[in-house]
């Protein structure tokens, strides 16, 4: 006789996390979804009625800004993720293979240090560097290399630079853990069998680190597409993302119902991308359902 039907007492330890998840994600999301199908707040307004008009407003997009905002959000998320991966992977690989404990600790501190400062502060720091009267443009103009300031800010470029700086540590920390667990002898075996450094990396280390790439990319992508402060401050008028539109709807247009619909749409589109990404990477690595 087995007692597999009975949950282990240890399983109860996840109860607080489960409760938090239900209280602070499932319930608010359910309320937000319900609100997105109402004309107003049904709790305070007895005349509020069920409607799909908020979704129609987005889908029909007669204003001509919502689809562009969604595409802009996803584009910023994808580019930030790719650049963070390209910067983060070599750094994570170097850290994971570092023999010196002191060296590892110092690099780890260097990676974590920026996270000790708030996102707003870091974004303002980027503003002082990239704006028209910022450090870079002022220096280049003083040296006579340019006459007019380079467009480093108030666009997607500046937004992505600041986002990459903010989210690279998340990529590095995720990748370091995974790469550090890959048995170095596998790479050495490949090389002893005649593979060059590059081939050993591409055919052994890289596929084995795919779970880390997947986890790090998803983390950075999720954080980038939901970023609000950085695109608002760095993007000027040339960047309009869905989180900015949602904040507008709640904070200044006072239309939480449409904001709810935008939130649901952003989540559904992101989920579709995450599922597709997961499947592609799973196929590439020959495994199934890595995440």
């Amino acid at each position: 006789m087995t007692n597999t039907a009975r949950p282990s007492p240890i399983a109860w330890l996840i109860a607080p996390a489960g409760l938090l998840f239900v209280l602070f994600f499932v319930m608010p999301f359910a309320v937000m979804t319900a609100m997105s199908f109402y004309s107003g707040n049904p709790v305070t307004n007895p005349n509020a009625f069920l409607t799909t008009r908020h979704y129609e407003r987005f889908i029909l997009d007669t204003a001509g800004i919502f689809h562009e905002a969604l595409w802009s959000t996803l584009r910023i998320g994808l580019v930030t993720t790719i650049v963070s991966l390209l910067i983060g992977y070599p750094l994570a690989h170097w850290m994971a293979r570092m023999q010196s404990r002191l060296g590892h600790a110092l690099v780890l501190m260097a990676v974590i240090a920026p996270m000790l400062t708030g996102i707003v502060v870091r974004t303002f720091a980027w503003m002082t560097i990239l704006q028209d009267k910022g450090v870079i443009n002022t220096t280049l103009i003083q040296w006579g290399l340019i006459e007019k300031p380079l467009p480093l800010m108030y666009n997607e470029f500046g937004t992505i630079v600041a986002l990459v700086h903010i989210y690279v540590p998340f990529m590095v920390l995720t990748l370091t853990g995974v790469i550090g667990r890959i048995d170095e002898r596998l790479e050495q075996a490949a090389r002893s069998l005649g593979a060059g450094r590059l081939r050993a990396f591409v055919e052994v280390t890289l596929p084995l680190s795919l779970p880390g790439i997947l986890a790090g990319s998803l983390l950075v992508f999720a954080l980038s597409i939901s970023a609000y402060v950085t695109p608002s401050l760095m993007g000027g008028t040339n960047v309009l993302t869905l989180p900015m539109l949602i904040a507008q709807q709640v904070g200044t247009s006072f239309n939480p119902n449409f904001a709810g619909a935008l939130g649901v749409i952003l989540l559904l589109v992101s989920l579709a991308i995450v599922v597709a990404y997961n499947r592609i990477l799973a196929r590439l690595s020959g495994e199934q359902g890595m995440a």
Binding site: T62, A63, I65, T237
Partner: peptide, 10 residues
């Protein structure tokens, strides 16, 4: 909002 966003973007 929609009109000015389009005017000022780009």
């Amino acid at each position: 909002d929609a009109r000015v966003t389009k005017i000022l973007k780009g």
